[in-house]
């Protein structure tokens, strides 16, 4: 039982990270109806932003490894990734806005390959060790947890989950309670009608890319806090898993992305814990295939029916 809960705890933290990346896929799909294959690479760039900016931020602010330090580096990486995401949309996708979807999709694959290869050129292909933004340790669980206090829960896991939760709540607020959020939802439902209501599509799309990319950047930092070895190709696998998470939850559906991300994290942890790490990716891809066969709209998605 303890063993099982331990796997769940491990899976939850990883799932939160997938959820953050999946939210970006699903948001961008919502407004532009295409999969931004370069999204996983933005996640990687978030980690590298932390790698380069982190030590500098900690030194200049005089904070050293600390919660405030993490928060600062996190914000810096989110900001950088938002700008990168906005830049990618502006340069690569906007000129193709009216072209067939497949052209944009292939462009996205091209952008992804470009970032990965330039990344290897600039950062070096070898793994780098991520700076300590916070000193990680196993938490001493209070005695009243009883048998559960035998669990190993690390500070970084709690941090990752806490930040993920905070960002998800914040995103929910933006999407459901603000004017730009309403515009995002309207645009994803009917771009023509949104324009006729006065929505400037370019601005809302730009905002969506910025927001989604910022979340990917945050995920990049959070991942690196847990597994402090980063490399320019780290976005491939994480991006793919998060994409599967978005499809699992129902692409275009924000709560779905969170549910999908957490589920994929949990499934992975259980496979690693009870079967073998070798099967981890196989099982996740099997989940993708099953969902596409039996519930193509995803767990929370509804099949879109256009009323004419």
């Amino acid at each position: 039982m303890i063993e099982f809960l331990q796997q769940l705890a491990n899976g939850l933290a990883q799932g939160g990270i997938y959820a953050l990346i999946a939210l970006g896929y699903t948001m961008i799909y919502g407004v532009l109806r295409f999969i931004n294959f370069a999204h996983g690479d933005v996640f990687m760039l978030g980690a590298f932003a932390g790698f380069y900016v982190g030590p500098w931020v900690l030194r200049v602010s005089g904070l050293g490894p600390s919660y405030a330090g993490v928060a600062l580096v996190l914000l810096a990486a989110m900001l950088l990734c938002a700008l990168i995401g906005i830049g990618i949309e502006r340069l690569c996708y906007r000129p193709l806005r009216d072209r067939p979807r497949i052209i944009v999709l292939i462009t996205a694959i091209g952008v992804s390959l470009l970032i990965e290869n330039v990344g290897q050129l600039v950062f070096g292909a070898d793994p780098k060790s991520f700076p300590d933004l916070v000193i990680d340790r196993a938490l001493v669980l209070p005695a009243w947890w009883g048998r559960l206090s035998a669990l190993t829960i690390t500070l970084s896991q709690v941090l990752v989950l806490g930040v993920t939760l905070l960002l998800v709540v914040l995103l929910r607020y933006i999407v459901n309670r603000t004017r730009i959020g309403l515009a995002m939802r309207a645009l994803s439902l009917n771009p023509t009608a949104a324009q006729l209501a006065g929505v400037d599509l370019d601005r809302v799309i730009m905002f969506t890319f910025g927001l989604g990319s910022a979340l990917a950047g945050a995920a990049g930092i959070l991942t690196s806090i847990q597994q402090p070895s980063i490399d320019p190709l780290m976005g491939i696998s994480a991006g793919l898993k998060a994409f599967i998470a978005a499809v699992l939850g129902g692409i275009g559906n924000l709560p779905g992305a969170v549910v999908g991300g957490v589920l994929i994290g949990l499934i992975e942890a259980l496979v690693v814990g009870y079967l073998s790490p070798t099967y981890r990716d196989t099982i996740v891809f099997a989940v993708l295939i099953l969902i596409l066969i039996f519930r193509p709209a995803g767990l929370l998605g509804t099949v879109q029916r256009e009323k004419v």
Partner: peptide, 12 residues
């Protein structure tokens, strides 16, 4: 402009 086919935001 009230477009042909109404184009209301169906999920809102």
């Amino acid at each position: 402009h009230v477009p042909e086919g109404r184009m209301i935001f169906s999920n809102l």
